[in-house]
Computed example of a mutant assay.
Amino acid sequence: MSIKYRKDHIPKGTANNRRPGIAMQATTITIHNTGNQSSSAANERGWLTNPTNNRQASFHIAIDEREAVECIPLNENAWHAGDGSVVSSGNRTSIGIEICESGNYAQTLENAVDLVAKMLKERGWGVDRLKRHYDWSRKICPRLMYDGGSWTGWDLFKAAVIAKLDLTYNNKEDEAMEKANVIVNGKKIKDGVLINGETFVPLRAVGESIGAKISWNNQIKTATLDTQ
Rank of each mutant, 00 (worst) to 15 (best):
S2D: 12
S2Y: 03
I3C: 03
K4D: 13
Y5F: 14
Y5A: 11
R6L: 15
P11L: 13
G13M: 06
N17L: 12
N17V: 12
R18N: 11
G21E: 13
M24F: 00
M24L: 14
Q25W: 01
Q25C: 02
A26M: 05
T30K: 03
T30H: 03
T30F: 05
I31S: 10
H32P: 01
N33G: 05
T34M: 07
G35L: 09
S38G: 15
A41C: 13
A42W: 01
A42D: 15
L48E: 10
N54R: 09
I63T: 08
I63K: 02
I63Y: 07
D64I: 13
E65N: 10
E67P: 04
E67A: 10
V69C: 10
E70N: 04
I72R: 12
L74M: 12
N75K: 01
N77C: 14
N77Q: 10
A78Q: 09
W79Y: 14
D83I: 08
D83E: 03
V86T: 13
V86C: 05
V86M: 08
V86S: 14
V87K: 07
V87D: 11
S88W: 00
S88N: 06
G90M: 02
N91Q: 02
N91A: 10
S94F: 01
S94I: 02
I97A: 07
C100D: 06
E101F: 00
Q107G: 02
L109R: 07
D114H: 08
D114Y: 08
L115R: 08
L115H: 03
V116H: 04
A117W: 02
A117D: 06
R123I: 11
G124F: 01
K131F: 13
K131I: 09
R132K: 15
H133P: 00
H133V: 15
Y134W: 08
S137W: 00
I140M: 08
I140K: 08
C141A: 09
R143Y: 05
L144H: 04
M145A: 14
D147Y: 11
T152A: 12
G153L: 08
D155F: 01
L156I: 10
K158R: 15
V161T: 09
A163M: 00
L167T: 02
L167P: 00
Y169K: 03
N170I: 06
K172T: 15
D174V: 00
D174E: 07
E178N: 11
K179I: 11
A180S: 13
V182W: 01
K188Y: 01
I189D: 04
K190H: 12
D191G: 06
N196K: 12
N196T: 11
N196V: 07
N196C: 04
G197S: 09
E198Q: 13
F200K: 10
L203Y: 03
R204C: 02
S209F: 04
K213A: 10
I214Q: 06
I214V: 15
N217S: 14
N217K: 07
N218Y: 08
T222F: 04
A223E: 13
L225G: 05
Q228T: 02
